[in-house]
Nucleic acid binder design. Structure first.
Length: 562
RNA sequence: UGAGGAGUAGCCAAGUGGUACGGCAUCGGGUUUUGGUCCCGACAUCCCCAGGUUCGAAUCCUGGCUCCUCAGCCA
């Protein structure tokens, strides 16, 4: 348990604590997580969720969940549901504080009318093309719209008729009257309302005009009495507009926008557009495909909320653009699961092993630890018999140096069972080994030889007659390069990893795994962490997904030896 | 060529004028009935560069350089 006083504060916490000193927001912290319901949440959102809810928790404030639903043509109820599920699954609770920007459409409309009345907004009748031309460029100032100086009465009348649906989309917009010569393009009379004759998933056909983000977000924050409105770096340029709107509308409180660097992870893509494209073009099975960096994908993959939260804590919060190594995410998963995952034995690529001196038909049960890291998790009984399956990788007819597993004449421990020595092999017509013959040491019950001799290798196994057949899906990174959308002019889909999914059908798992529950991730000893697939697992046809492998130093040694 | 940001190890990230925390990755070694875990050790004479101030600079000043964001009636 680390002491809060000695852990370094990130820059946002410093701002908050400074605000406490000056009583800037009445000593309160109210944050919000404001997704647009136009896609599934991903690990980048998890960073924001952990930040916002975490701050509220740390400073005893509250955090709202708010759907930023101002663009009905892109949004959908499906996303609203998945977002709530994902936030909850991550372990956060917004209590009573769930809101929709669309709840404020009425208030927003009033504010717009107020701005018009004050001469701070006007109806502009330039088309989209014209508007763009008048806006100027990054280096040249814009030109004022010919409609900029319409009278308050005319603006009021036009805006009312826009709202009543009298005009077509694109005919008019409402613009804030700021400064067409500003170096910040956002300040060049930004559009704050546009005509959209779309059915809204919450307000139905009531509105023919919808407010834009820059007008909506700050005012929604003010409505909810948000103190610190935390968003990502690309909104830095929007902050002057955020402040301008609040000032112009004379809201009673002034939330402050703070920007931080969004999460980037190597070997994946994070933009909603690209994730949607992967789904629509069937490069993956859906938003919750275990290879997706979505929360639902990670969940189906076998990730725990704890691991994701720990990851978010470790990556830090700063303003520097950064790309976090995928290995850190995997590390956080292994760390959590090592502590908590029940162990089990599973053989992915079976090789039959027959114990010649073990009585035919005899069955013993061995006590195996459910988790050596946590004895309180108890033990389970695993059946053992004369015919077993072991991993093909755990036998070499011609073993390299320092190979501690099975080979002709070599002895290994069968985990939690007996010591066996290989006496012979059986090959098929093509010369591959299809069966390994062994003898066992009856005085090594449980794996400890009576004479105390040392045996370096321990391998996992299942009893051939008792094991359950299973399908196992081995997942690897979705892309073959660190930065799939890095190269200019080249399509990220070119770097899709063709080996990101390997389905292994003829696996055997210990019998107890037949009634595994979804949501629990197991450690298959010596292999990795696996969870029952939430979509396809049944007791009759068990399907497991590999979340992550165990660290494997042997593969390194072997590689180095080549 | 405008405006706004950012540069500390392979990747994150502390550091706020007193001599570079921590994590991941990597590389050694030990323990081990998982080649897992765990434990021990190594890993920036240097903080984008160049000047300057100072007894002392990653921190202050000046001048450069590089990278990111913005020209949706998206968010």
């Amino acid at each position: 348990m680390s002491n809060e006083a000695d852990t370094p504060r990130n820059f946002i916490e410093e701002i908050i604590e400074d605000d406490f000193k000056t009583n800037r927001h009445g000593g309160k912290v109210v944050t919000r997580f404001p997704p647009e319901p136009n896609g599934y949440l991903h690990i980048g959102h998890a960073k924001s969720i952990c930040l916002n809810f975490g701050l509220a928790e740390k400073y005893r404030g509250r955090c709202h969940l708010r759907f930023d639903d101002t663009n009905p043509v892109k949004e959908d109820i499906e996303y609203i549901e998945s977002i709530q599920e994902d936030v909850r699954w991550l372990g956060f609770d917004w209590g009573e504080h769930m809101y929709y920007a669309s709840d404020y459409f009425g208030r927003l409309h009033d504010y717009a009318v107020d701005l018009i009345t004050k001469g701070k907004a006007y109806v502009c009748s330039l088309g989209p093309e014209e508007t763009r031309k008048y806006r100027g460029t990054l280096t040249e100032p814009g030109k004022e719209s010919p409609y900029r100086n319409r009278s308050v009465e005319e603006n009021l009348d036009l805006f009312r008729r826009m709202a009543e649906g009298e005009f077509q989309e694109g005919e008019h917009v409402l613009r804030a009257k700021i400064d067409m010569a500003s170096g910040n393009i956002n300040m060049r009379d930004p559009v704050i309302y546009r005509i959209l004759k779309a059915e809204h998933h919450r307000t139905g056909g009531k509105w023919k005009i919808y407010p834009m983000y820059d007008f909506t977000h700050c005012l929604s924050d003010a409505e909810e009495d948000i103190s610190h409105s935390i968003c990502t770096l690309e909104f830095e340029n929007n902050r002057p507009l955020y402040d301008w709107v609040l000032e112009a509308c004379e809201t009673p409180n002034r939330p402050q926008q703070i920007e931080f660097a969004r999460l980037n992870l190597n070997y994946t893509v994070m933009s909603k557009r690209k994730l949607l494209q992967l789904v629509q073009e069937k490069h993956v099975s859906g938003w919750d495909d275990p290879r997706m960096p979505t929360i639902s994908g990670l969940r189906r993959r076998g990730y725990s909320p704890e691991a994701i939260r720990e990851f978010c804590n470790r990556i830090g919060v700063a303003k520097r653009d950064s790309v976090v190594d995928y290995a850190l995410l995997e590390h956080c998963l292994r760390e959590d699961l090592n502590r908590r995952a029940p162990r089990a034995m599973a053989v992915l690529r079976p090789l039959k092993l027959i114990i010649e001196n073990y009585p035919e038909g005899q069955v013993e049960e061995f006590e195996a630890m459910n988790n050596p890291e946590d004895p309180s998790m108890g033990t389970r009984r695993v059946p053992f018999s004369r015919e077993l399956y072991i991993e093909q990788d755990d036998f070499r007819e011609d073993p390299p140096k320092k190979y501690f597993r099975l080979a002709p004449g070599q002895e290994v421990r069968l985990r939690a069972a007996y010591l066996v020595r290989c006496t012979d092999v059986v090959k098929d017509s093509s010369g591959s080994v299809i069966e390994v013959r062994c003898t066992y040491d009856p005085d090594s019950r449980g794996g400890t030889p009576a004479d105390g001799r040392k045996v370096r290798g321990t391998i996992h196994w299942v009893s051939a007659t008792h094991a359950l057949g299973a399908e196992v899906r081995l997942y690897d990174r979705l892309f073959t390069v660190e930065n799939p959308d890095g190269e200019e002019g080249s399509d990220y889909r070119k770097f899709l990893n063709p080996a990101s999914l390997e389905v292994v059908k003829n696996c055997y798992v210990e019998p107890g795994l037949g009634n595994a529950e979804t949501g629990v991730t197991f450690q298959f000893e010596r292999l990795g962490y696996f969870c029952p697939d939430s979509g396809d697992f049944t007791a009759e046809h068990p399907v497991f997904n590999r979340a992550v492998t165990l660290r494997d130093s042997w593969s390194r040694i072997e590689k180095a030896g080549e």
